[in-house]
Each structure stands twice: as C-alpha cells, then as structure tokens.
Design a protein around this nucleic acid. Sequence first.
DNA 1: TTGATCGGACCGACCGGTCGTCTTATCATA
DNA 2: TATGATAAGACGACCGGTCGGTCCGATCAA
Lengths: 195, 195
Amino acid sequence: MSPDTSRSRLIREAKTLMLAKGYSGTTVDEICRAAAVSKGSFYHFFHSKEQLGLTVLDEYFSSTLQPLMNGPFVEIDDPIQRALALIEYAETISADIWAEGCLLGSFAVDLAETSTKVRQQVSSRFLRLERELAQIFKAAGLGKAGDATATPEELAGHFIAAIEGSIVLARAHNDTKRIARTIRDFGRYIKLLIS
Amino acid sequence: MSPDTSRSRLIREAKTLMLAKGYSGTTVDEICRAAAVSKGSFYHFFHSKEQLGLTVLDEYFSSTLQPLMNGPFVEIDDPIQRALALIEYAETISADIWAEGCLLGSFAVDLAETSTKVRQQVSSRFLRLERELAQIFKAAGLGKAGDATATPEELAGHFIAAIEGSIVLARAHNDTKRIARTIRDFGRYIKLLIS
DNA sequence: TTGATCGGACCGACCGGTCGTCTTATCATA
DNA sequence: TATGATAAGACGACCGGTCGGTCCGATCAA
C-alpha cells in the first residue's frame, strides 16, 4: 500500500509537517530529518520545495479527499437518500480525515498570493469536489425552484465552505468535534430544503 | 484616526503582509522595509515577532471584526428582523472586509500547533463573536425546539464556519464574490428556520 | 559498467534578534 | 531664558543559526 521508499517517506512526512505548521513553516531540512533522508536525496527526487508541495497536494487529494466521494452512499439508488447519506458519511468520517486539518485549505491560505501554480492546483481540486457535490444535490431535486432557492452549485459551495471553515475553527479551539457538528447542521438545512 | 507613527506603521504593514503571505511567510525585515522603519526601531517597540503578531491580531479584531457586530441592524427592535438584517449586513460588507482574507483564520491555520499563546487569542476572539451571534439568533427564537433543531450556538458556529470557509475558497479561486454568495445561502437557511 | 540512489559538506542569502550610538523632545532648575 | 539631565525614538552593522538549493563522490543493483 505505502511502499516506504525514500520518495514516499518524504511525501508522507512533508504532508504531516505541512498540515501541522503550514507550507512556509515547514523546512526542507526538517522534512529530510523526519523522513531519514539526506538533502542530496531530497533534491534528487524533487527539484524544489514547491514541486514537493504540488506532489504532496496531489497525494493528499487522491488519498484523503477523493475517497470521501466514493463512500457507501454511492450505492443508494434514491437520489434524495443518497444526498442525505453523503452528508451523514462526511459527518461520520470528519473527525478522522480532518483531525490534522485540510491541506487544500492550508495551502490556499499560505500560498494563494505567493505561488500561482499552487493556487491553481488547489482551485481546480476544490472545483472538482464542488462539481461532484452539485451533481448529487441536483439529482436530489435541490435548487430547482425560482428566485428564493439556492442553486445546486451554491449549496455545494456552502457545504465545502462550512467544512473548511469548521476545520479552521477546530484548530483554533482545539476541538475536532466542531467539524461534525457543523456538517450535521448543514444536513438540517438540506433536510429542510427537501421537505 | 491612524496616527502614522513608526509603531502604527509597523502594525499596519505587518497586517497587510501577514494577510497576504501568512505569519511564517512574512519576515521582520520585510515589515521594516514596508513601514520604512529600521530593525532597531522594530525591536524598540516589540520584543519579538510573536508579540507583534499578537498586537496585529488585536488591532485586526477591534478594527475589522468588532465593527461587524455594531452594524445598523443593532437598532432594529424586532429580533427576527434584526437577525436577518445582521446576515444581510455581513453579506453586504463581506467583499470589503474580507477581500484580503481573515487574520483570525490565517493565524489559526499557521500557528495553532506552533504558538499556544496565539492559538488561545484566536480562540477567545472567535468565541466572543460566536456568543454574540448566538445571542442574536436566540432572541429571534431560533433553536428553541426539540431534537431535530440546531441550538443557537450551533447556528452561530455554522455561520462563522461558512464565512471562514468561504474566505479560504475565495482565495483559492481568486473570487471574492464567493463570500457574499455563501452568506446569502446561510441566510436562506435561517429564513427557512423562521418560517 | 552504468545509471539510479544516497550522503553530507558546502553555498550565499536571509532569518529573528542584539547592541551601541546618535538624534530629538521634554522639563526641572538656575 | 538658557542649561543640562533624562529618556524615547531611530539607526544599521552585526550575531549565530538556518534557509532553499548545489555539488560531487560513494554505494548498490542490474
């Protein structure tokens, strides 16, 4: 599963450290030390710290965020029940997958005005999530009405924002449970829209 | 209003730079250069970078976030209309006050695991906002019912999370309007709870 | 033998922070 | 009104250490 090569160790330790202290707050020396790899080896595998960052971002998305969209809810046929199950699933696993923060959000805050390349990667990955969520919400019949109702895209944006924001608050208050609580409340909103 | 002393210039430029590049990504030399102040003077006014950070945090809260809670809505007598006006007010001014990000959220992400002092300051200021919001929601009769309804505190937490998260997404997508859009959608939720 | 992998000394620039010195405003005393 | 003591403010060279990144020789499997 995780091969434990020098390269994979560098990525893994970089992910942990950057989640804890941000991109700028994490040094290459520190990553090398944690991965028990020399600096020469580091620059054999990555030609810059930024390139490692992009690689870590990719790994984070496909190993942590993508699985979220492949939860058990995908097998539910009724689109309304599927949408509700998705939110419930997110609530259930939230404490596990976001206990240390979210790398997309962290990189967005840290690097949006510093590295265009990172910003674009973060943006496109958030958009991918948003599109998938909007599709599920739309299939559930959400956001079809006139003026006063949200579009599926707005609901998806609200959902992701609530999650990302609650991750920030969880860090600030040192209280992981906040994430699940906020997701649960977003679920109440969706239930109101359905009924 | 803003005195333009060396000290105030240091705080102002530090705020701008730290919003743009985060705490770790901003150096003391850089702040001194932007404020046209020598390094000796910097350490005459602040005995460390962290102390400047705490000062900037304080200034940011009282000059940017506290005014949000003193908007025109405070003069509305009907508690329901007041709650709705608060959300609308937040939506209106969101593009202005959060165009460059939110220092509370940024510091939470950057420093929560590095500096206990900063984390506590961020936490207590988020809590202050949350309590005030919860009070307004509670007065509007929100969250009094049984099991299936959110408490005023949960709604306030959801509101702040949605705002903080949308600020992160706005940075990621380089699109400030996202913040207002998310706040508007939270307003729809509150309207549903009222009716 | 060759190319991937690894090791770590080394680089110039920059980090947060110190220090001694100079200038300027304040103010009691003569 | 002139004087001298005091202190706040300003300055930038300087400190040891660390930054991201380079370089080249050693090691190892094919």
